[in-house]
Design a protein around this nucleic acid. Structure first.
Length: 813
RNA sequence: GCUCGUGUGGUGGAAUCGGCAGACACAACGGACUUAAAAUCCGUCGGACUAACCCUCCGUGCCAGUUCGAGUCUGGCCACGAGCACCA
């Protein structure tokens, strides 16, 4: 039977019946946790991108399994989230119904992929058995001060009608729907991820992650070393602190600026300036976030009428408010040094404020103002002449002695806003009581179930707020009537710990057993899209560290090794989308060619981390390749009994060389996700087998062993086909219980090697030398070759460089 | 604006520590088989020069440099992509 989707079904059935991919719980010493980022069960089916991620990671896992690892390879669904809810608003189909239906479809499709998933460990985040523990983790974070509620200006997406975390805002727009994000003052729940800023940074270097991803996280955390310096408000008891990385320019301060939102503004503004200040604050509040963050917009501000006292000189400097100072970073106040900061310079020029130079450039350096580089101090009293670098420490030291400042590290990372004014998510397990205030739901009352019958037309208010039987409850503490929190949790909360739940997904006593996950985690290989660099991957690291510090697990990082698959584009080289009409539907190709052909094309046609455009010609080529192998094996199976020779001459040596070279290369390449070159080596092996098969007198034993190795090498990419071929050759079930082939070092040594001979670095001719020849002999062979004199042409040989097995370079003059 | 990444035939993509550029495929072209087509098999396949082969020369975005030797290392530039962006 020629390979087709029928073969797929035959072996999928057999695998299921024999439970071949069941994880062995009793052999944890050899465990290998291989994980793909779980998928969101959207209305559509599995797309080419899912296949690329899941199918090829499965190929990697299959090799690992054959190499003797006890592979843990679970699957699940990130099932809460906005698309299902929006779909419901449009069609009236309840999110729970559509989601569970989609999950059933995707499970079927995933099974048809023929992967090694052990479905016993499935996790679905929207089921109460799961989100009970999401809520439990929320309560632990709350107890340890890592979850808190505050009123703050937050990102609001007017189209999604919910708040967003900083990470979900791209260029001032909603990450999901691209609407412009506005600011809104709301009381919301936050997770204190900033407590881990430094550790999140410190652990990055040791992770086997793409450098780019580590860089993104480093930028996102944004560590900045500087100083906090105190300024007193003149004629008042008030004071405030500024954050600066340029304490060396302190003597150049000619005014200070507060963010318009700063609380101090009301208290210090003088009566004569009050109207102007109020007006300005009003204007600023109307400017959109995008405009406010624009660097090209002209800076504006107003004088408050108040003065601050310079901490070292005692001078009075004006206090301004201006919208180029951000309320949320540092202290929300800056000292302005127009001579040495471009923004301050622009502002000072516009409003005629003093510009005072305190830094000179080194000799020969253009230090025209504004001069923002390091240099040497001037006009800075006893610090004159020393370098910026020294001054930053010396000046802060002096401030310290006067109790007016100290060194300070600031991070750009903000706490993670987790409340969402939407329906389809995990309820927040908190009750508000008039008497007792904020009361956590007792653990034995979890889960706080998400009610089914809810009107979820989005109007900016949480749908749950309008569900009387949900919202009205009694206070767990005093028993009086009380109200539940009506928001739900950001779905990134659910996905921040699912990898911890997989190994212990049926545990109904705890989120996960500590002893078990200490053995099962960290994840050894994690594969998924690069778009999660600053969101999921950062949140999951935070959760792991927080759970560790709360005593629930004993490792520092969730994912030791990370790979991002590239993106498969449409045949036109554009991103696949329904509106472009360039999507590739895996199901159709699988019906036509079988799932192995589909998977193998994805492996061969692209550099894994790059991705690229889909090609129908490419998949046809793989179909031909599979047929070519099948013809060879069917022919061989029919001739297997016939007598062959046991000779081991040069033809056999050559075949054996290609065989072992393929084993070595494919093994190395699969290990590092270079599937395209691994398959190229297998193709070479098949070509060599064809060549050998055409000979009169063949060594049948060698041929059989070689074909079997070829099947084994192919099996991770074409699991169904490999089973079929293995069976055809009389191998026992299953090919996946065979050990991965090992290469023989001796077979890789050829009797003779071809080497290039260069004259002055240019290849002129080739010579064959015995592979055990030493450098002396190789040099001699190159020089005594009949072609040598023609190229040397009587010139002097300056030197001869021999690179064993590669080339000889004769340098002549 | 700052930071990082990428740039190789008609196409997808290879190339170890600086060592024969273009593996493996696709497409194209020529041939064999066939009544014919499909399938299959064999051959050619970076460019210039050439009737053709050899030879020679050029060739990994561009310009320099280091080196016996550079796709690979260094400096500068160009293009594309990504991340950050009034972060004090």
């Amino acid at each position: 039977m020629a390979y087709s989707v029928e073969i797929d079904r035959k072996w999928q059935k057999k695998w299921e019946e024999t439970n071949i991919y069941r994880f062995d719980k009793d052999n944890l010493d050899k465990k290998l946790y291989c994980l793909e980022m779980f998928s969101y069960p959207s209305g559509a089916k599995l797309h080419a991108g899912h296949w690329y991620n899941f199918g090829l990671t499965d190929s990697w896992a299959r090799m690992k399994r054959m190499q003797g690892h006890n592979v843990f390879h679970p699957q699940g669904f990130d099932a809460f989230g906005l698309p299902a809810e929006n779909f419901a608003i449009k069609t009236g189909i309840h999110p729970k119904d559509s989601t569970m239906q989609n999950i059933a479809t995707m499970e079927e499709q995933l099974k048809r992929m023929g992967a090694t998933f052990d479905w016993d460990y499935e996790v679905i985040t929207c089921l109460p058995e799961y989100y009970k523990w999401t809520q439990w983790i929320f309560l632990q974070l709350y107890k340890h001060g890592l979850a808190y509620r505050k009123n703050a200006p937050v990102n609001w997406c007017p189209s999604c009608k919910t708040v967003l975390a900083n990470e979900q805002v791209l260029d001032g727009c909603c990450e999901r729907c691209s609407s412009e994000v506005t600011k809104k003052n709301l009381t919301q729940w936050f997770f204190r991820i900033t407590k881990y800023s430094q550790e999140l940074l410190d652990c990055l270097p040791d992770l086997d992650w793409p450098e780019k991803t580590k860089k993104i996280q480093t930028n996102w955390i944004g560590r900045s070393e500087g100083a906090e310096i105190e300024f007193k408000v003149a004629d008042s008891d008030l004071s405030f602190r500024v954050f600066t990385t340029r304490a060396d320019t302190l003597y150049g301060v000619t005014y200070v600026v507060l963010a318009p939102e700063n609380e101090l503004v009301d208290k210090i503004t003088t009566d004569t300036c009050r109207r102007a200040v109020e007006e300005y604050r009003n204007t600023v509040s109307k400017v959109s976030e995008i405009d406010r963050l624009s660097t090209v917009r002209e800076k504006t501000g107003v004088f408050t009428g108040a003065y601050a006292i310079h901490p070292l000189t005692g001078e009075r400097v004006q206090i301004w408010i201006a919208d180029y100072v951000l309320a949320g970073y540092g202290t929300g106040c800056v000292m302005a040094v127009p001579a040495h900061d471009e923004r301050d310079y622009e502002f000072a020029t516009k409003y005629n404020l003093e510009v005072k130079r305190v830094i000179k450039g080194a000799e020969g350096i253009d230090d025209a103002l504004p001069f923002t580089e390091d240099g040497f101090l001037t006009g800075s009293m006893e610090f004159d002449g020393i370098s910026s670098e020294e001054a930053r420490l010396a000046i802060v030291k002096k401030l310290e002695s006067k109790n007016a400042g100290e060194l300070k590290v600031t991070y750009r990372l903000r706490d993670w806003l987790v409340s969402r004014q939407r329906y389809w998510g995990s309820p927040i397990p908190i009750v508000y009581c008039d008497k007792c205030g904020t009361v956590p739901v007792p653990e034995d009352q979890l889960p706080v179930e998400l009610p089914y019958n809810v009107v979820f037309t989005p109007d900016g208010e949480s749908p749950l707020a309008k569900c009387e039987e949900f919202i009205n409850t009694t206070c767990p503490s005093c028993g009086d009537p009380a109200r539940r929190d009506s928001d739900t949790l950001d779905t990134f909360v659910c996905s921040s710990w699912y990898f911890l739940r997989y190994p212990d997904n049926k545990n109904d006593k705890e989120a996960f057993n500590r002893e078990l996950i200490n053995k099962m985690l960290p994840v050894d290989k994690y594969v998924g899209g690069a778009e999660h660099a600053a969101m999921h991957l950062l949140y999951a690291r935070f959760f792991t560290k927080a759970l560790r510090d709360m005593g629930y697990l004993d490792f520092d990082e969730p994912f030791l090794s990370l790979v991002h698959q590239g993106v498969i584009l449409g045949p036109d080289g554009q991103k696949m989308s329904k509106s472009r009409g360039n999507t590739v539907s895996p199901d159709e190709y699988i019906e036509k060619y079988g799932s192995d052909v589909f998977r193998m094309y994805l492996a061969f046609g692209f550099s894994y981390v790059e991705g690229g455009p889909w090609s129908d010609d490419g998949i046809k080529a793989i179909d031909r390749f599979v047929n070519r192998i099948e013809r060879l094996i069917i022919k061989f199976a029919s001739e297997k009994g016939s007598a062959g020779s046991d000779q081991f001459g040069s033809d056999e040596k050559e075949l054996n060389y290609v065989r072992h070279f393929a084993i070595k290369s494919a093994t190395d390449d699969i290990e590092v996700f270079q599937f395209n070159t691994a398959i190229a080596r297998i193709m070479e092996l098949v070509n060599a087998l064809y060549k050998y098969d055409a000979l009169e007198n063949r060594n049948i034993k060698l041929m059989e062993d070689t074909i079997k190795d070829a099947i084994l090498l192919l099996s991770p990419f074409a699991p169904h086909f490999a089973e079929e071929m293995w069976e055809l050759l009389g191998g026992g079930y299953s090919v996946f219980n065979q050990p991965w082939p090992a290469y023989d070092e001796k077979a890789l040594v050829r009797d003779e090697v071809e080497m290039a001979v260069q004259i002055n670095g240019q290849v002129k001719y080739k010579i064959n030398v015995s592979s055990d020849a030493d450098n002396q002999q190789i040099e001699e062979a190159a020089l005594t070759d009949e072609r040598a004199d023609g190229y040397i042409g009587g010139r002097n040989i300056v030197k001869v460089i021999v690179v064993k097995g590669r080339l000889v370079n004769i340098v002549v003059k």
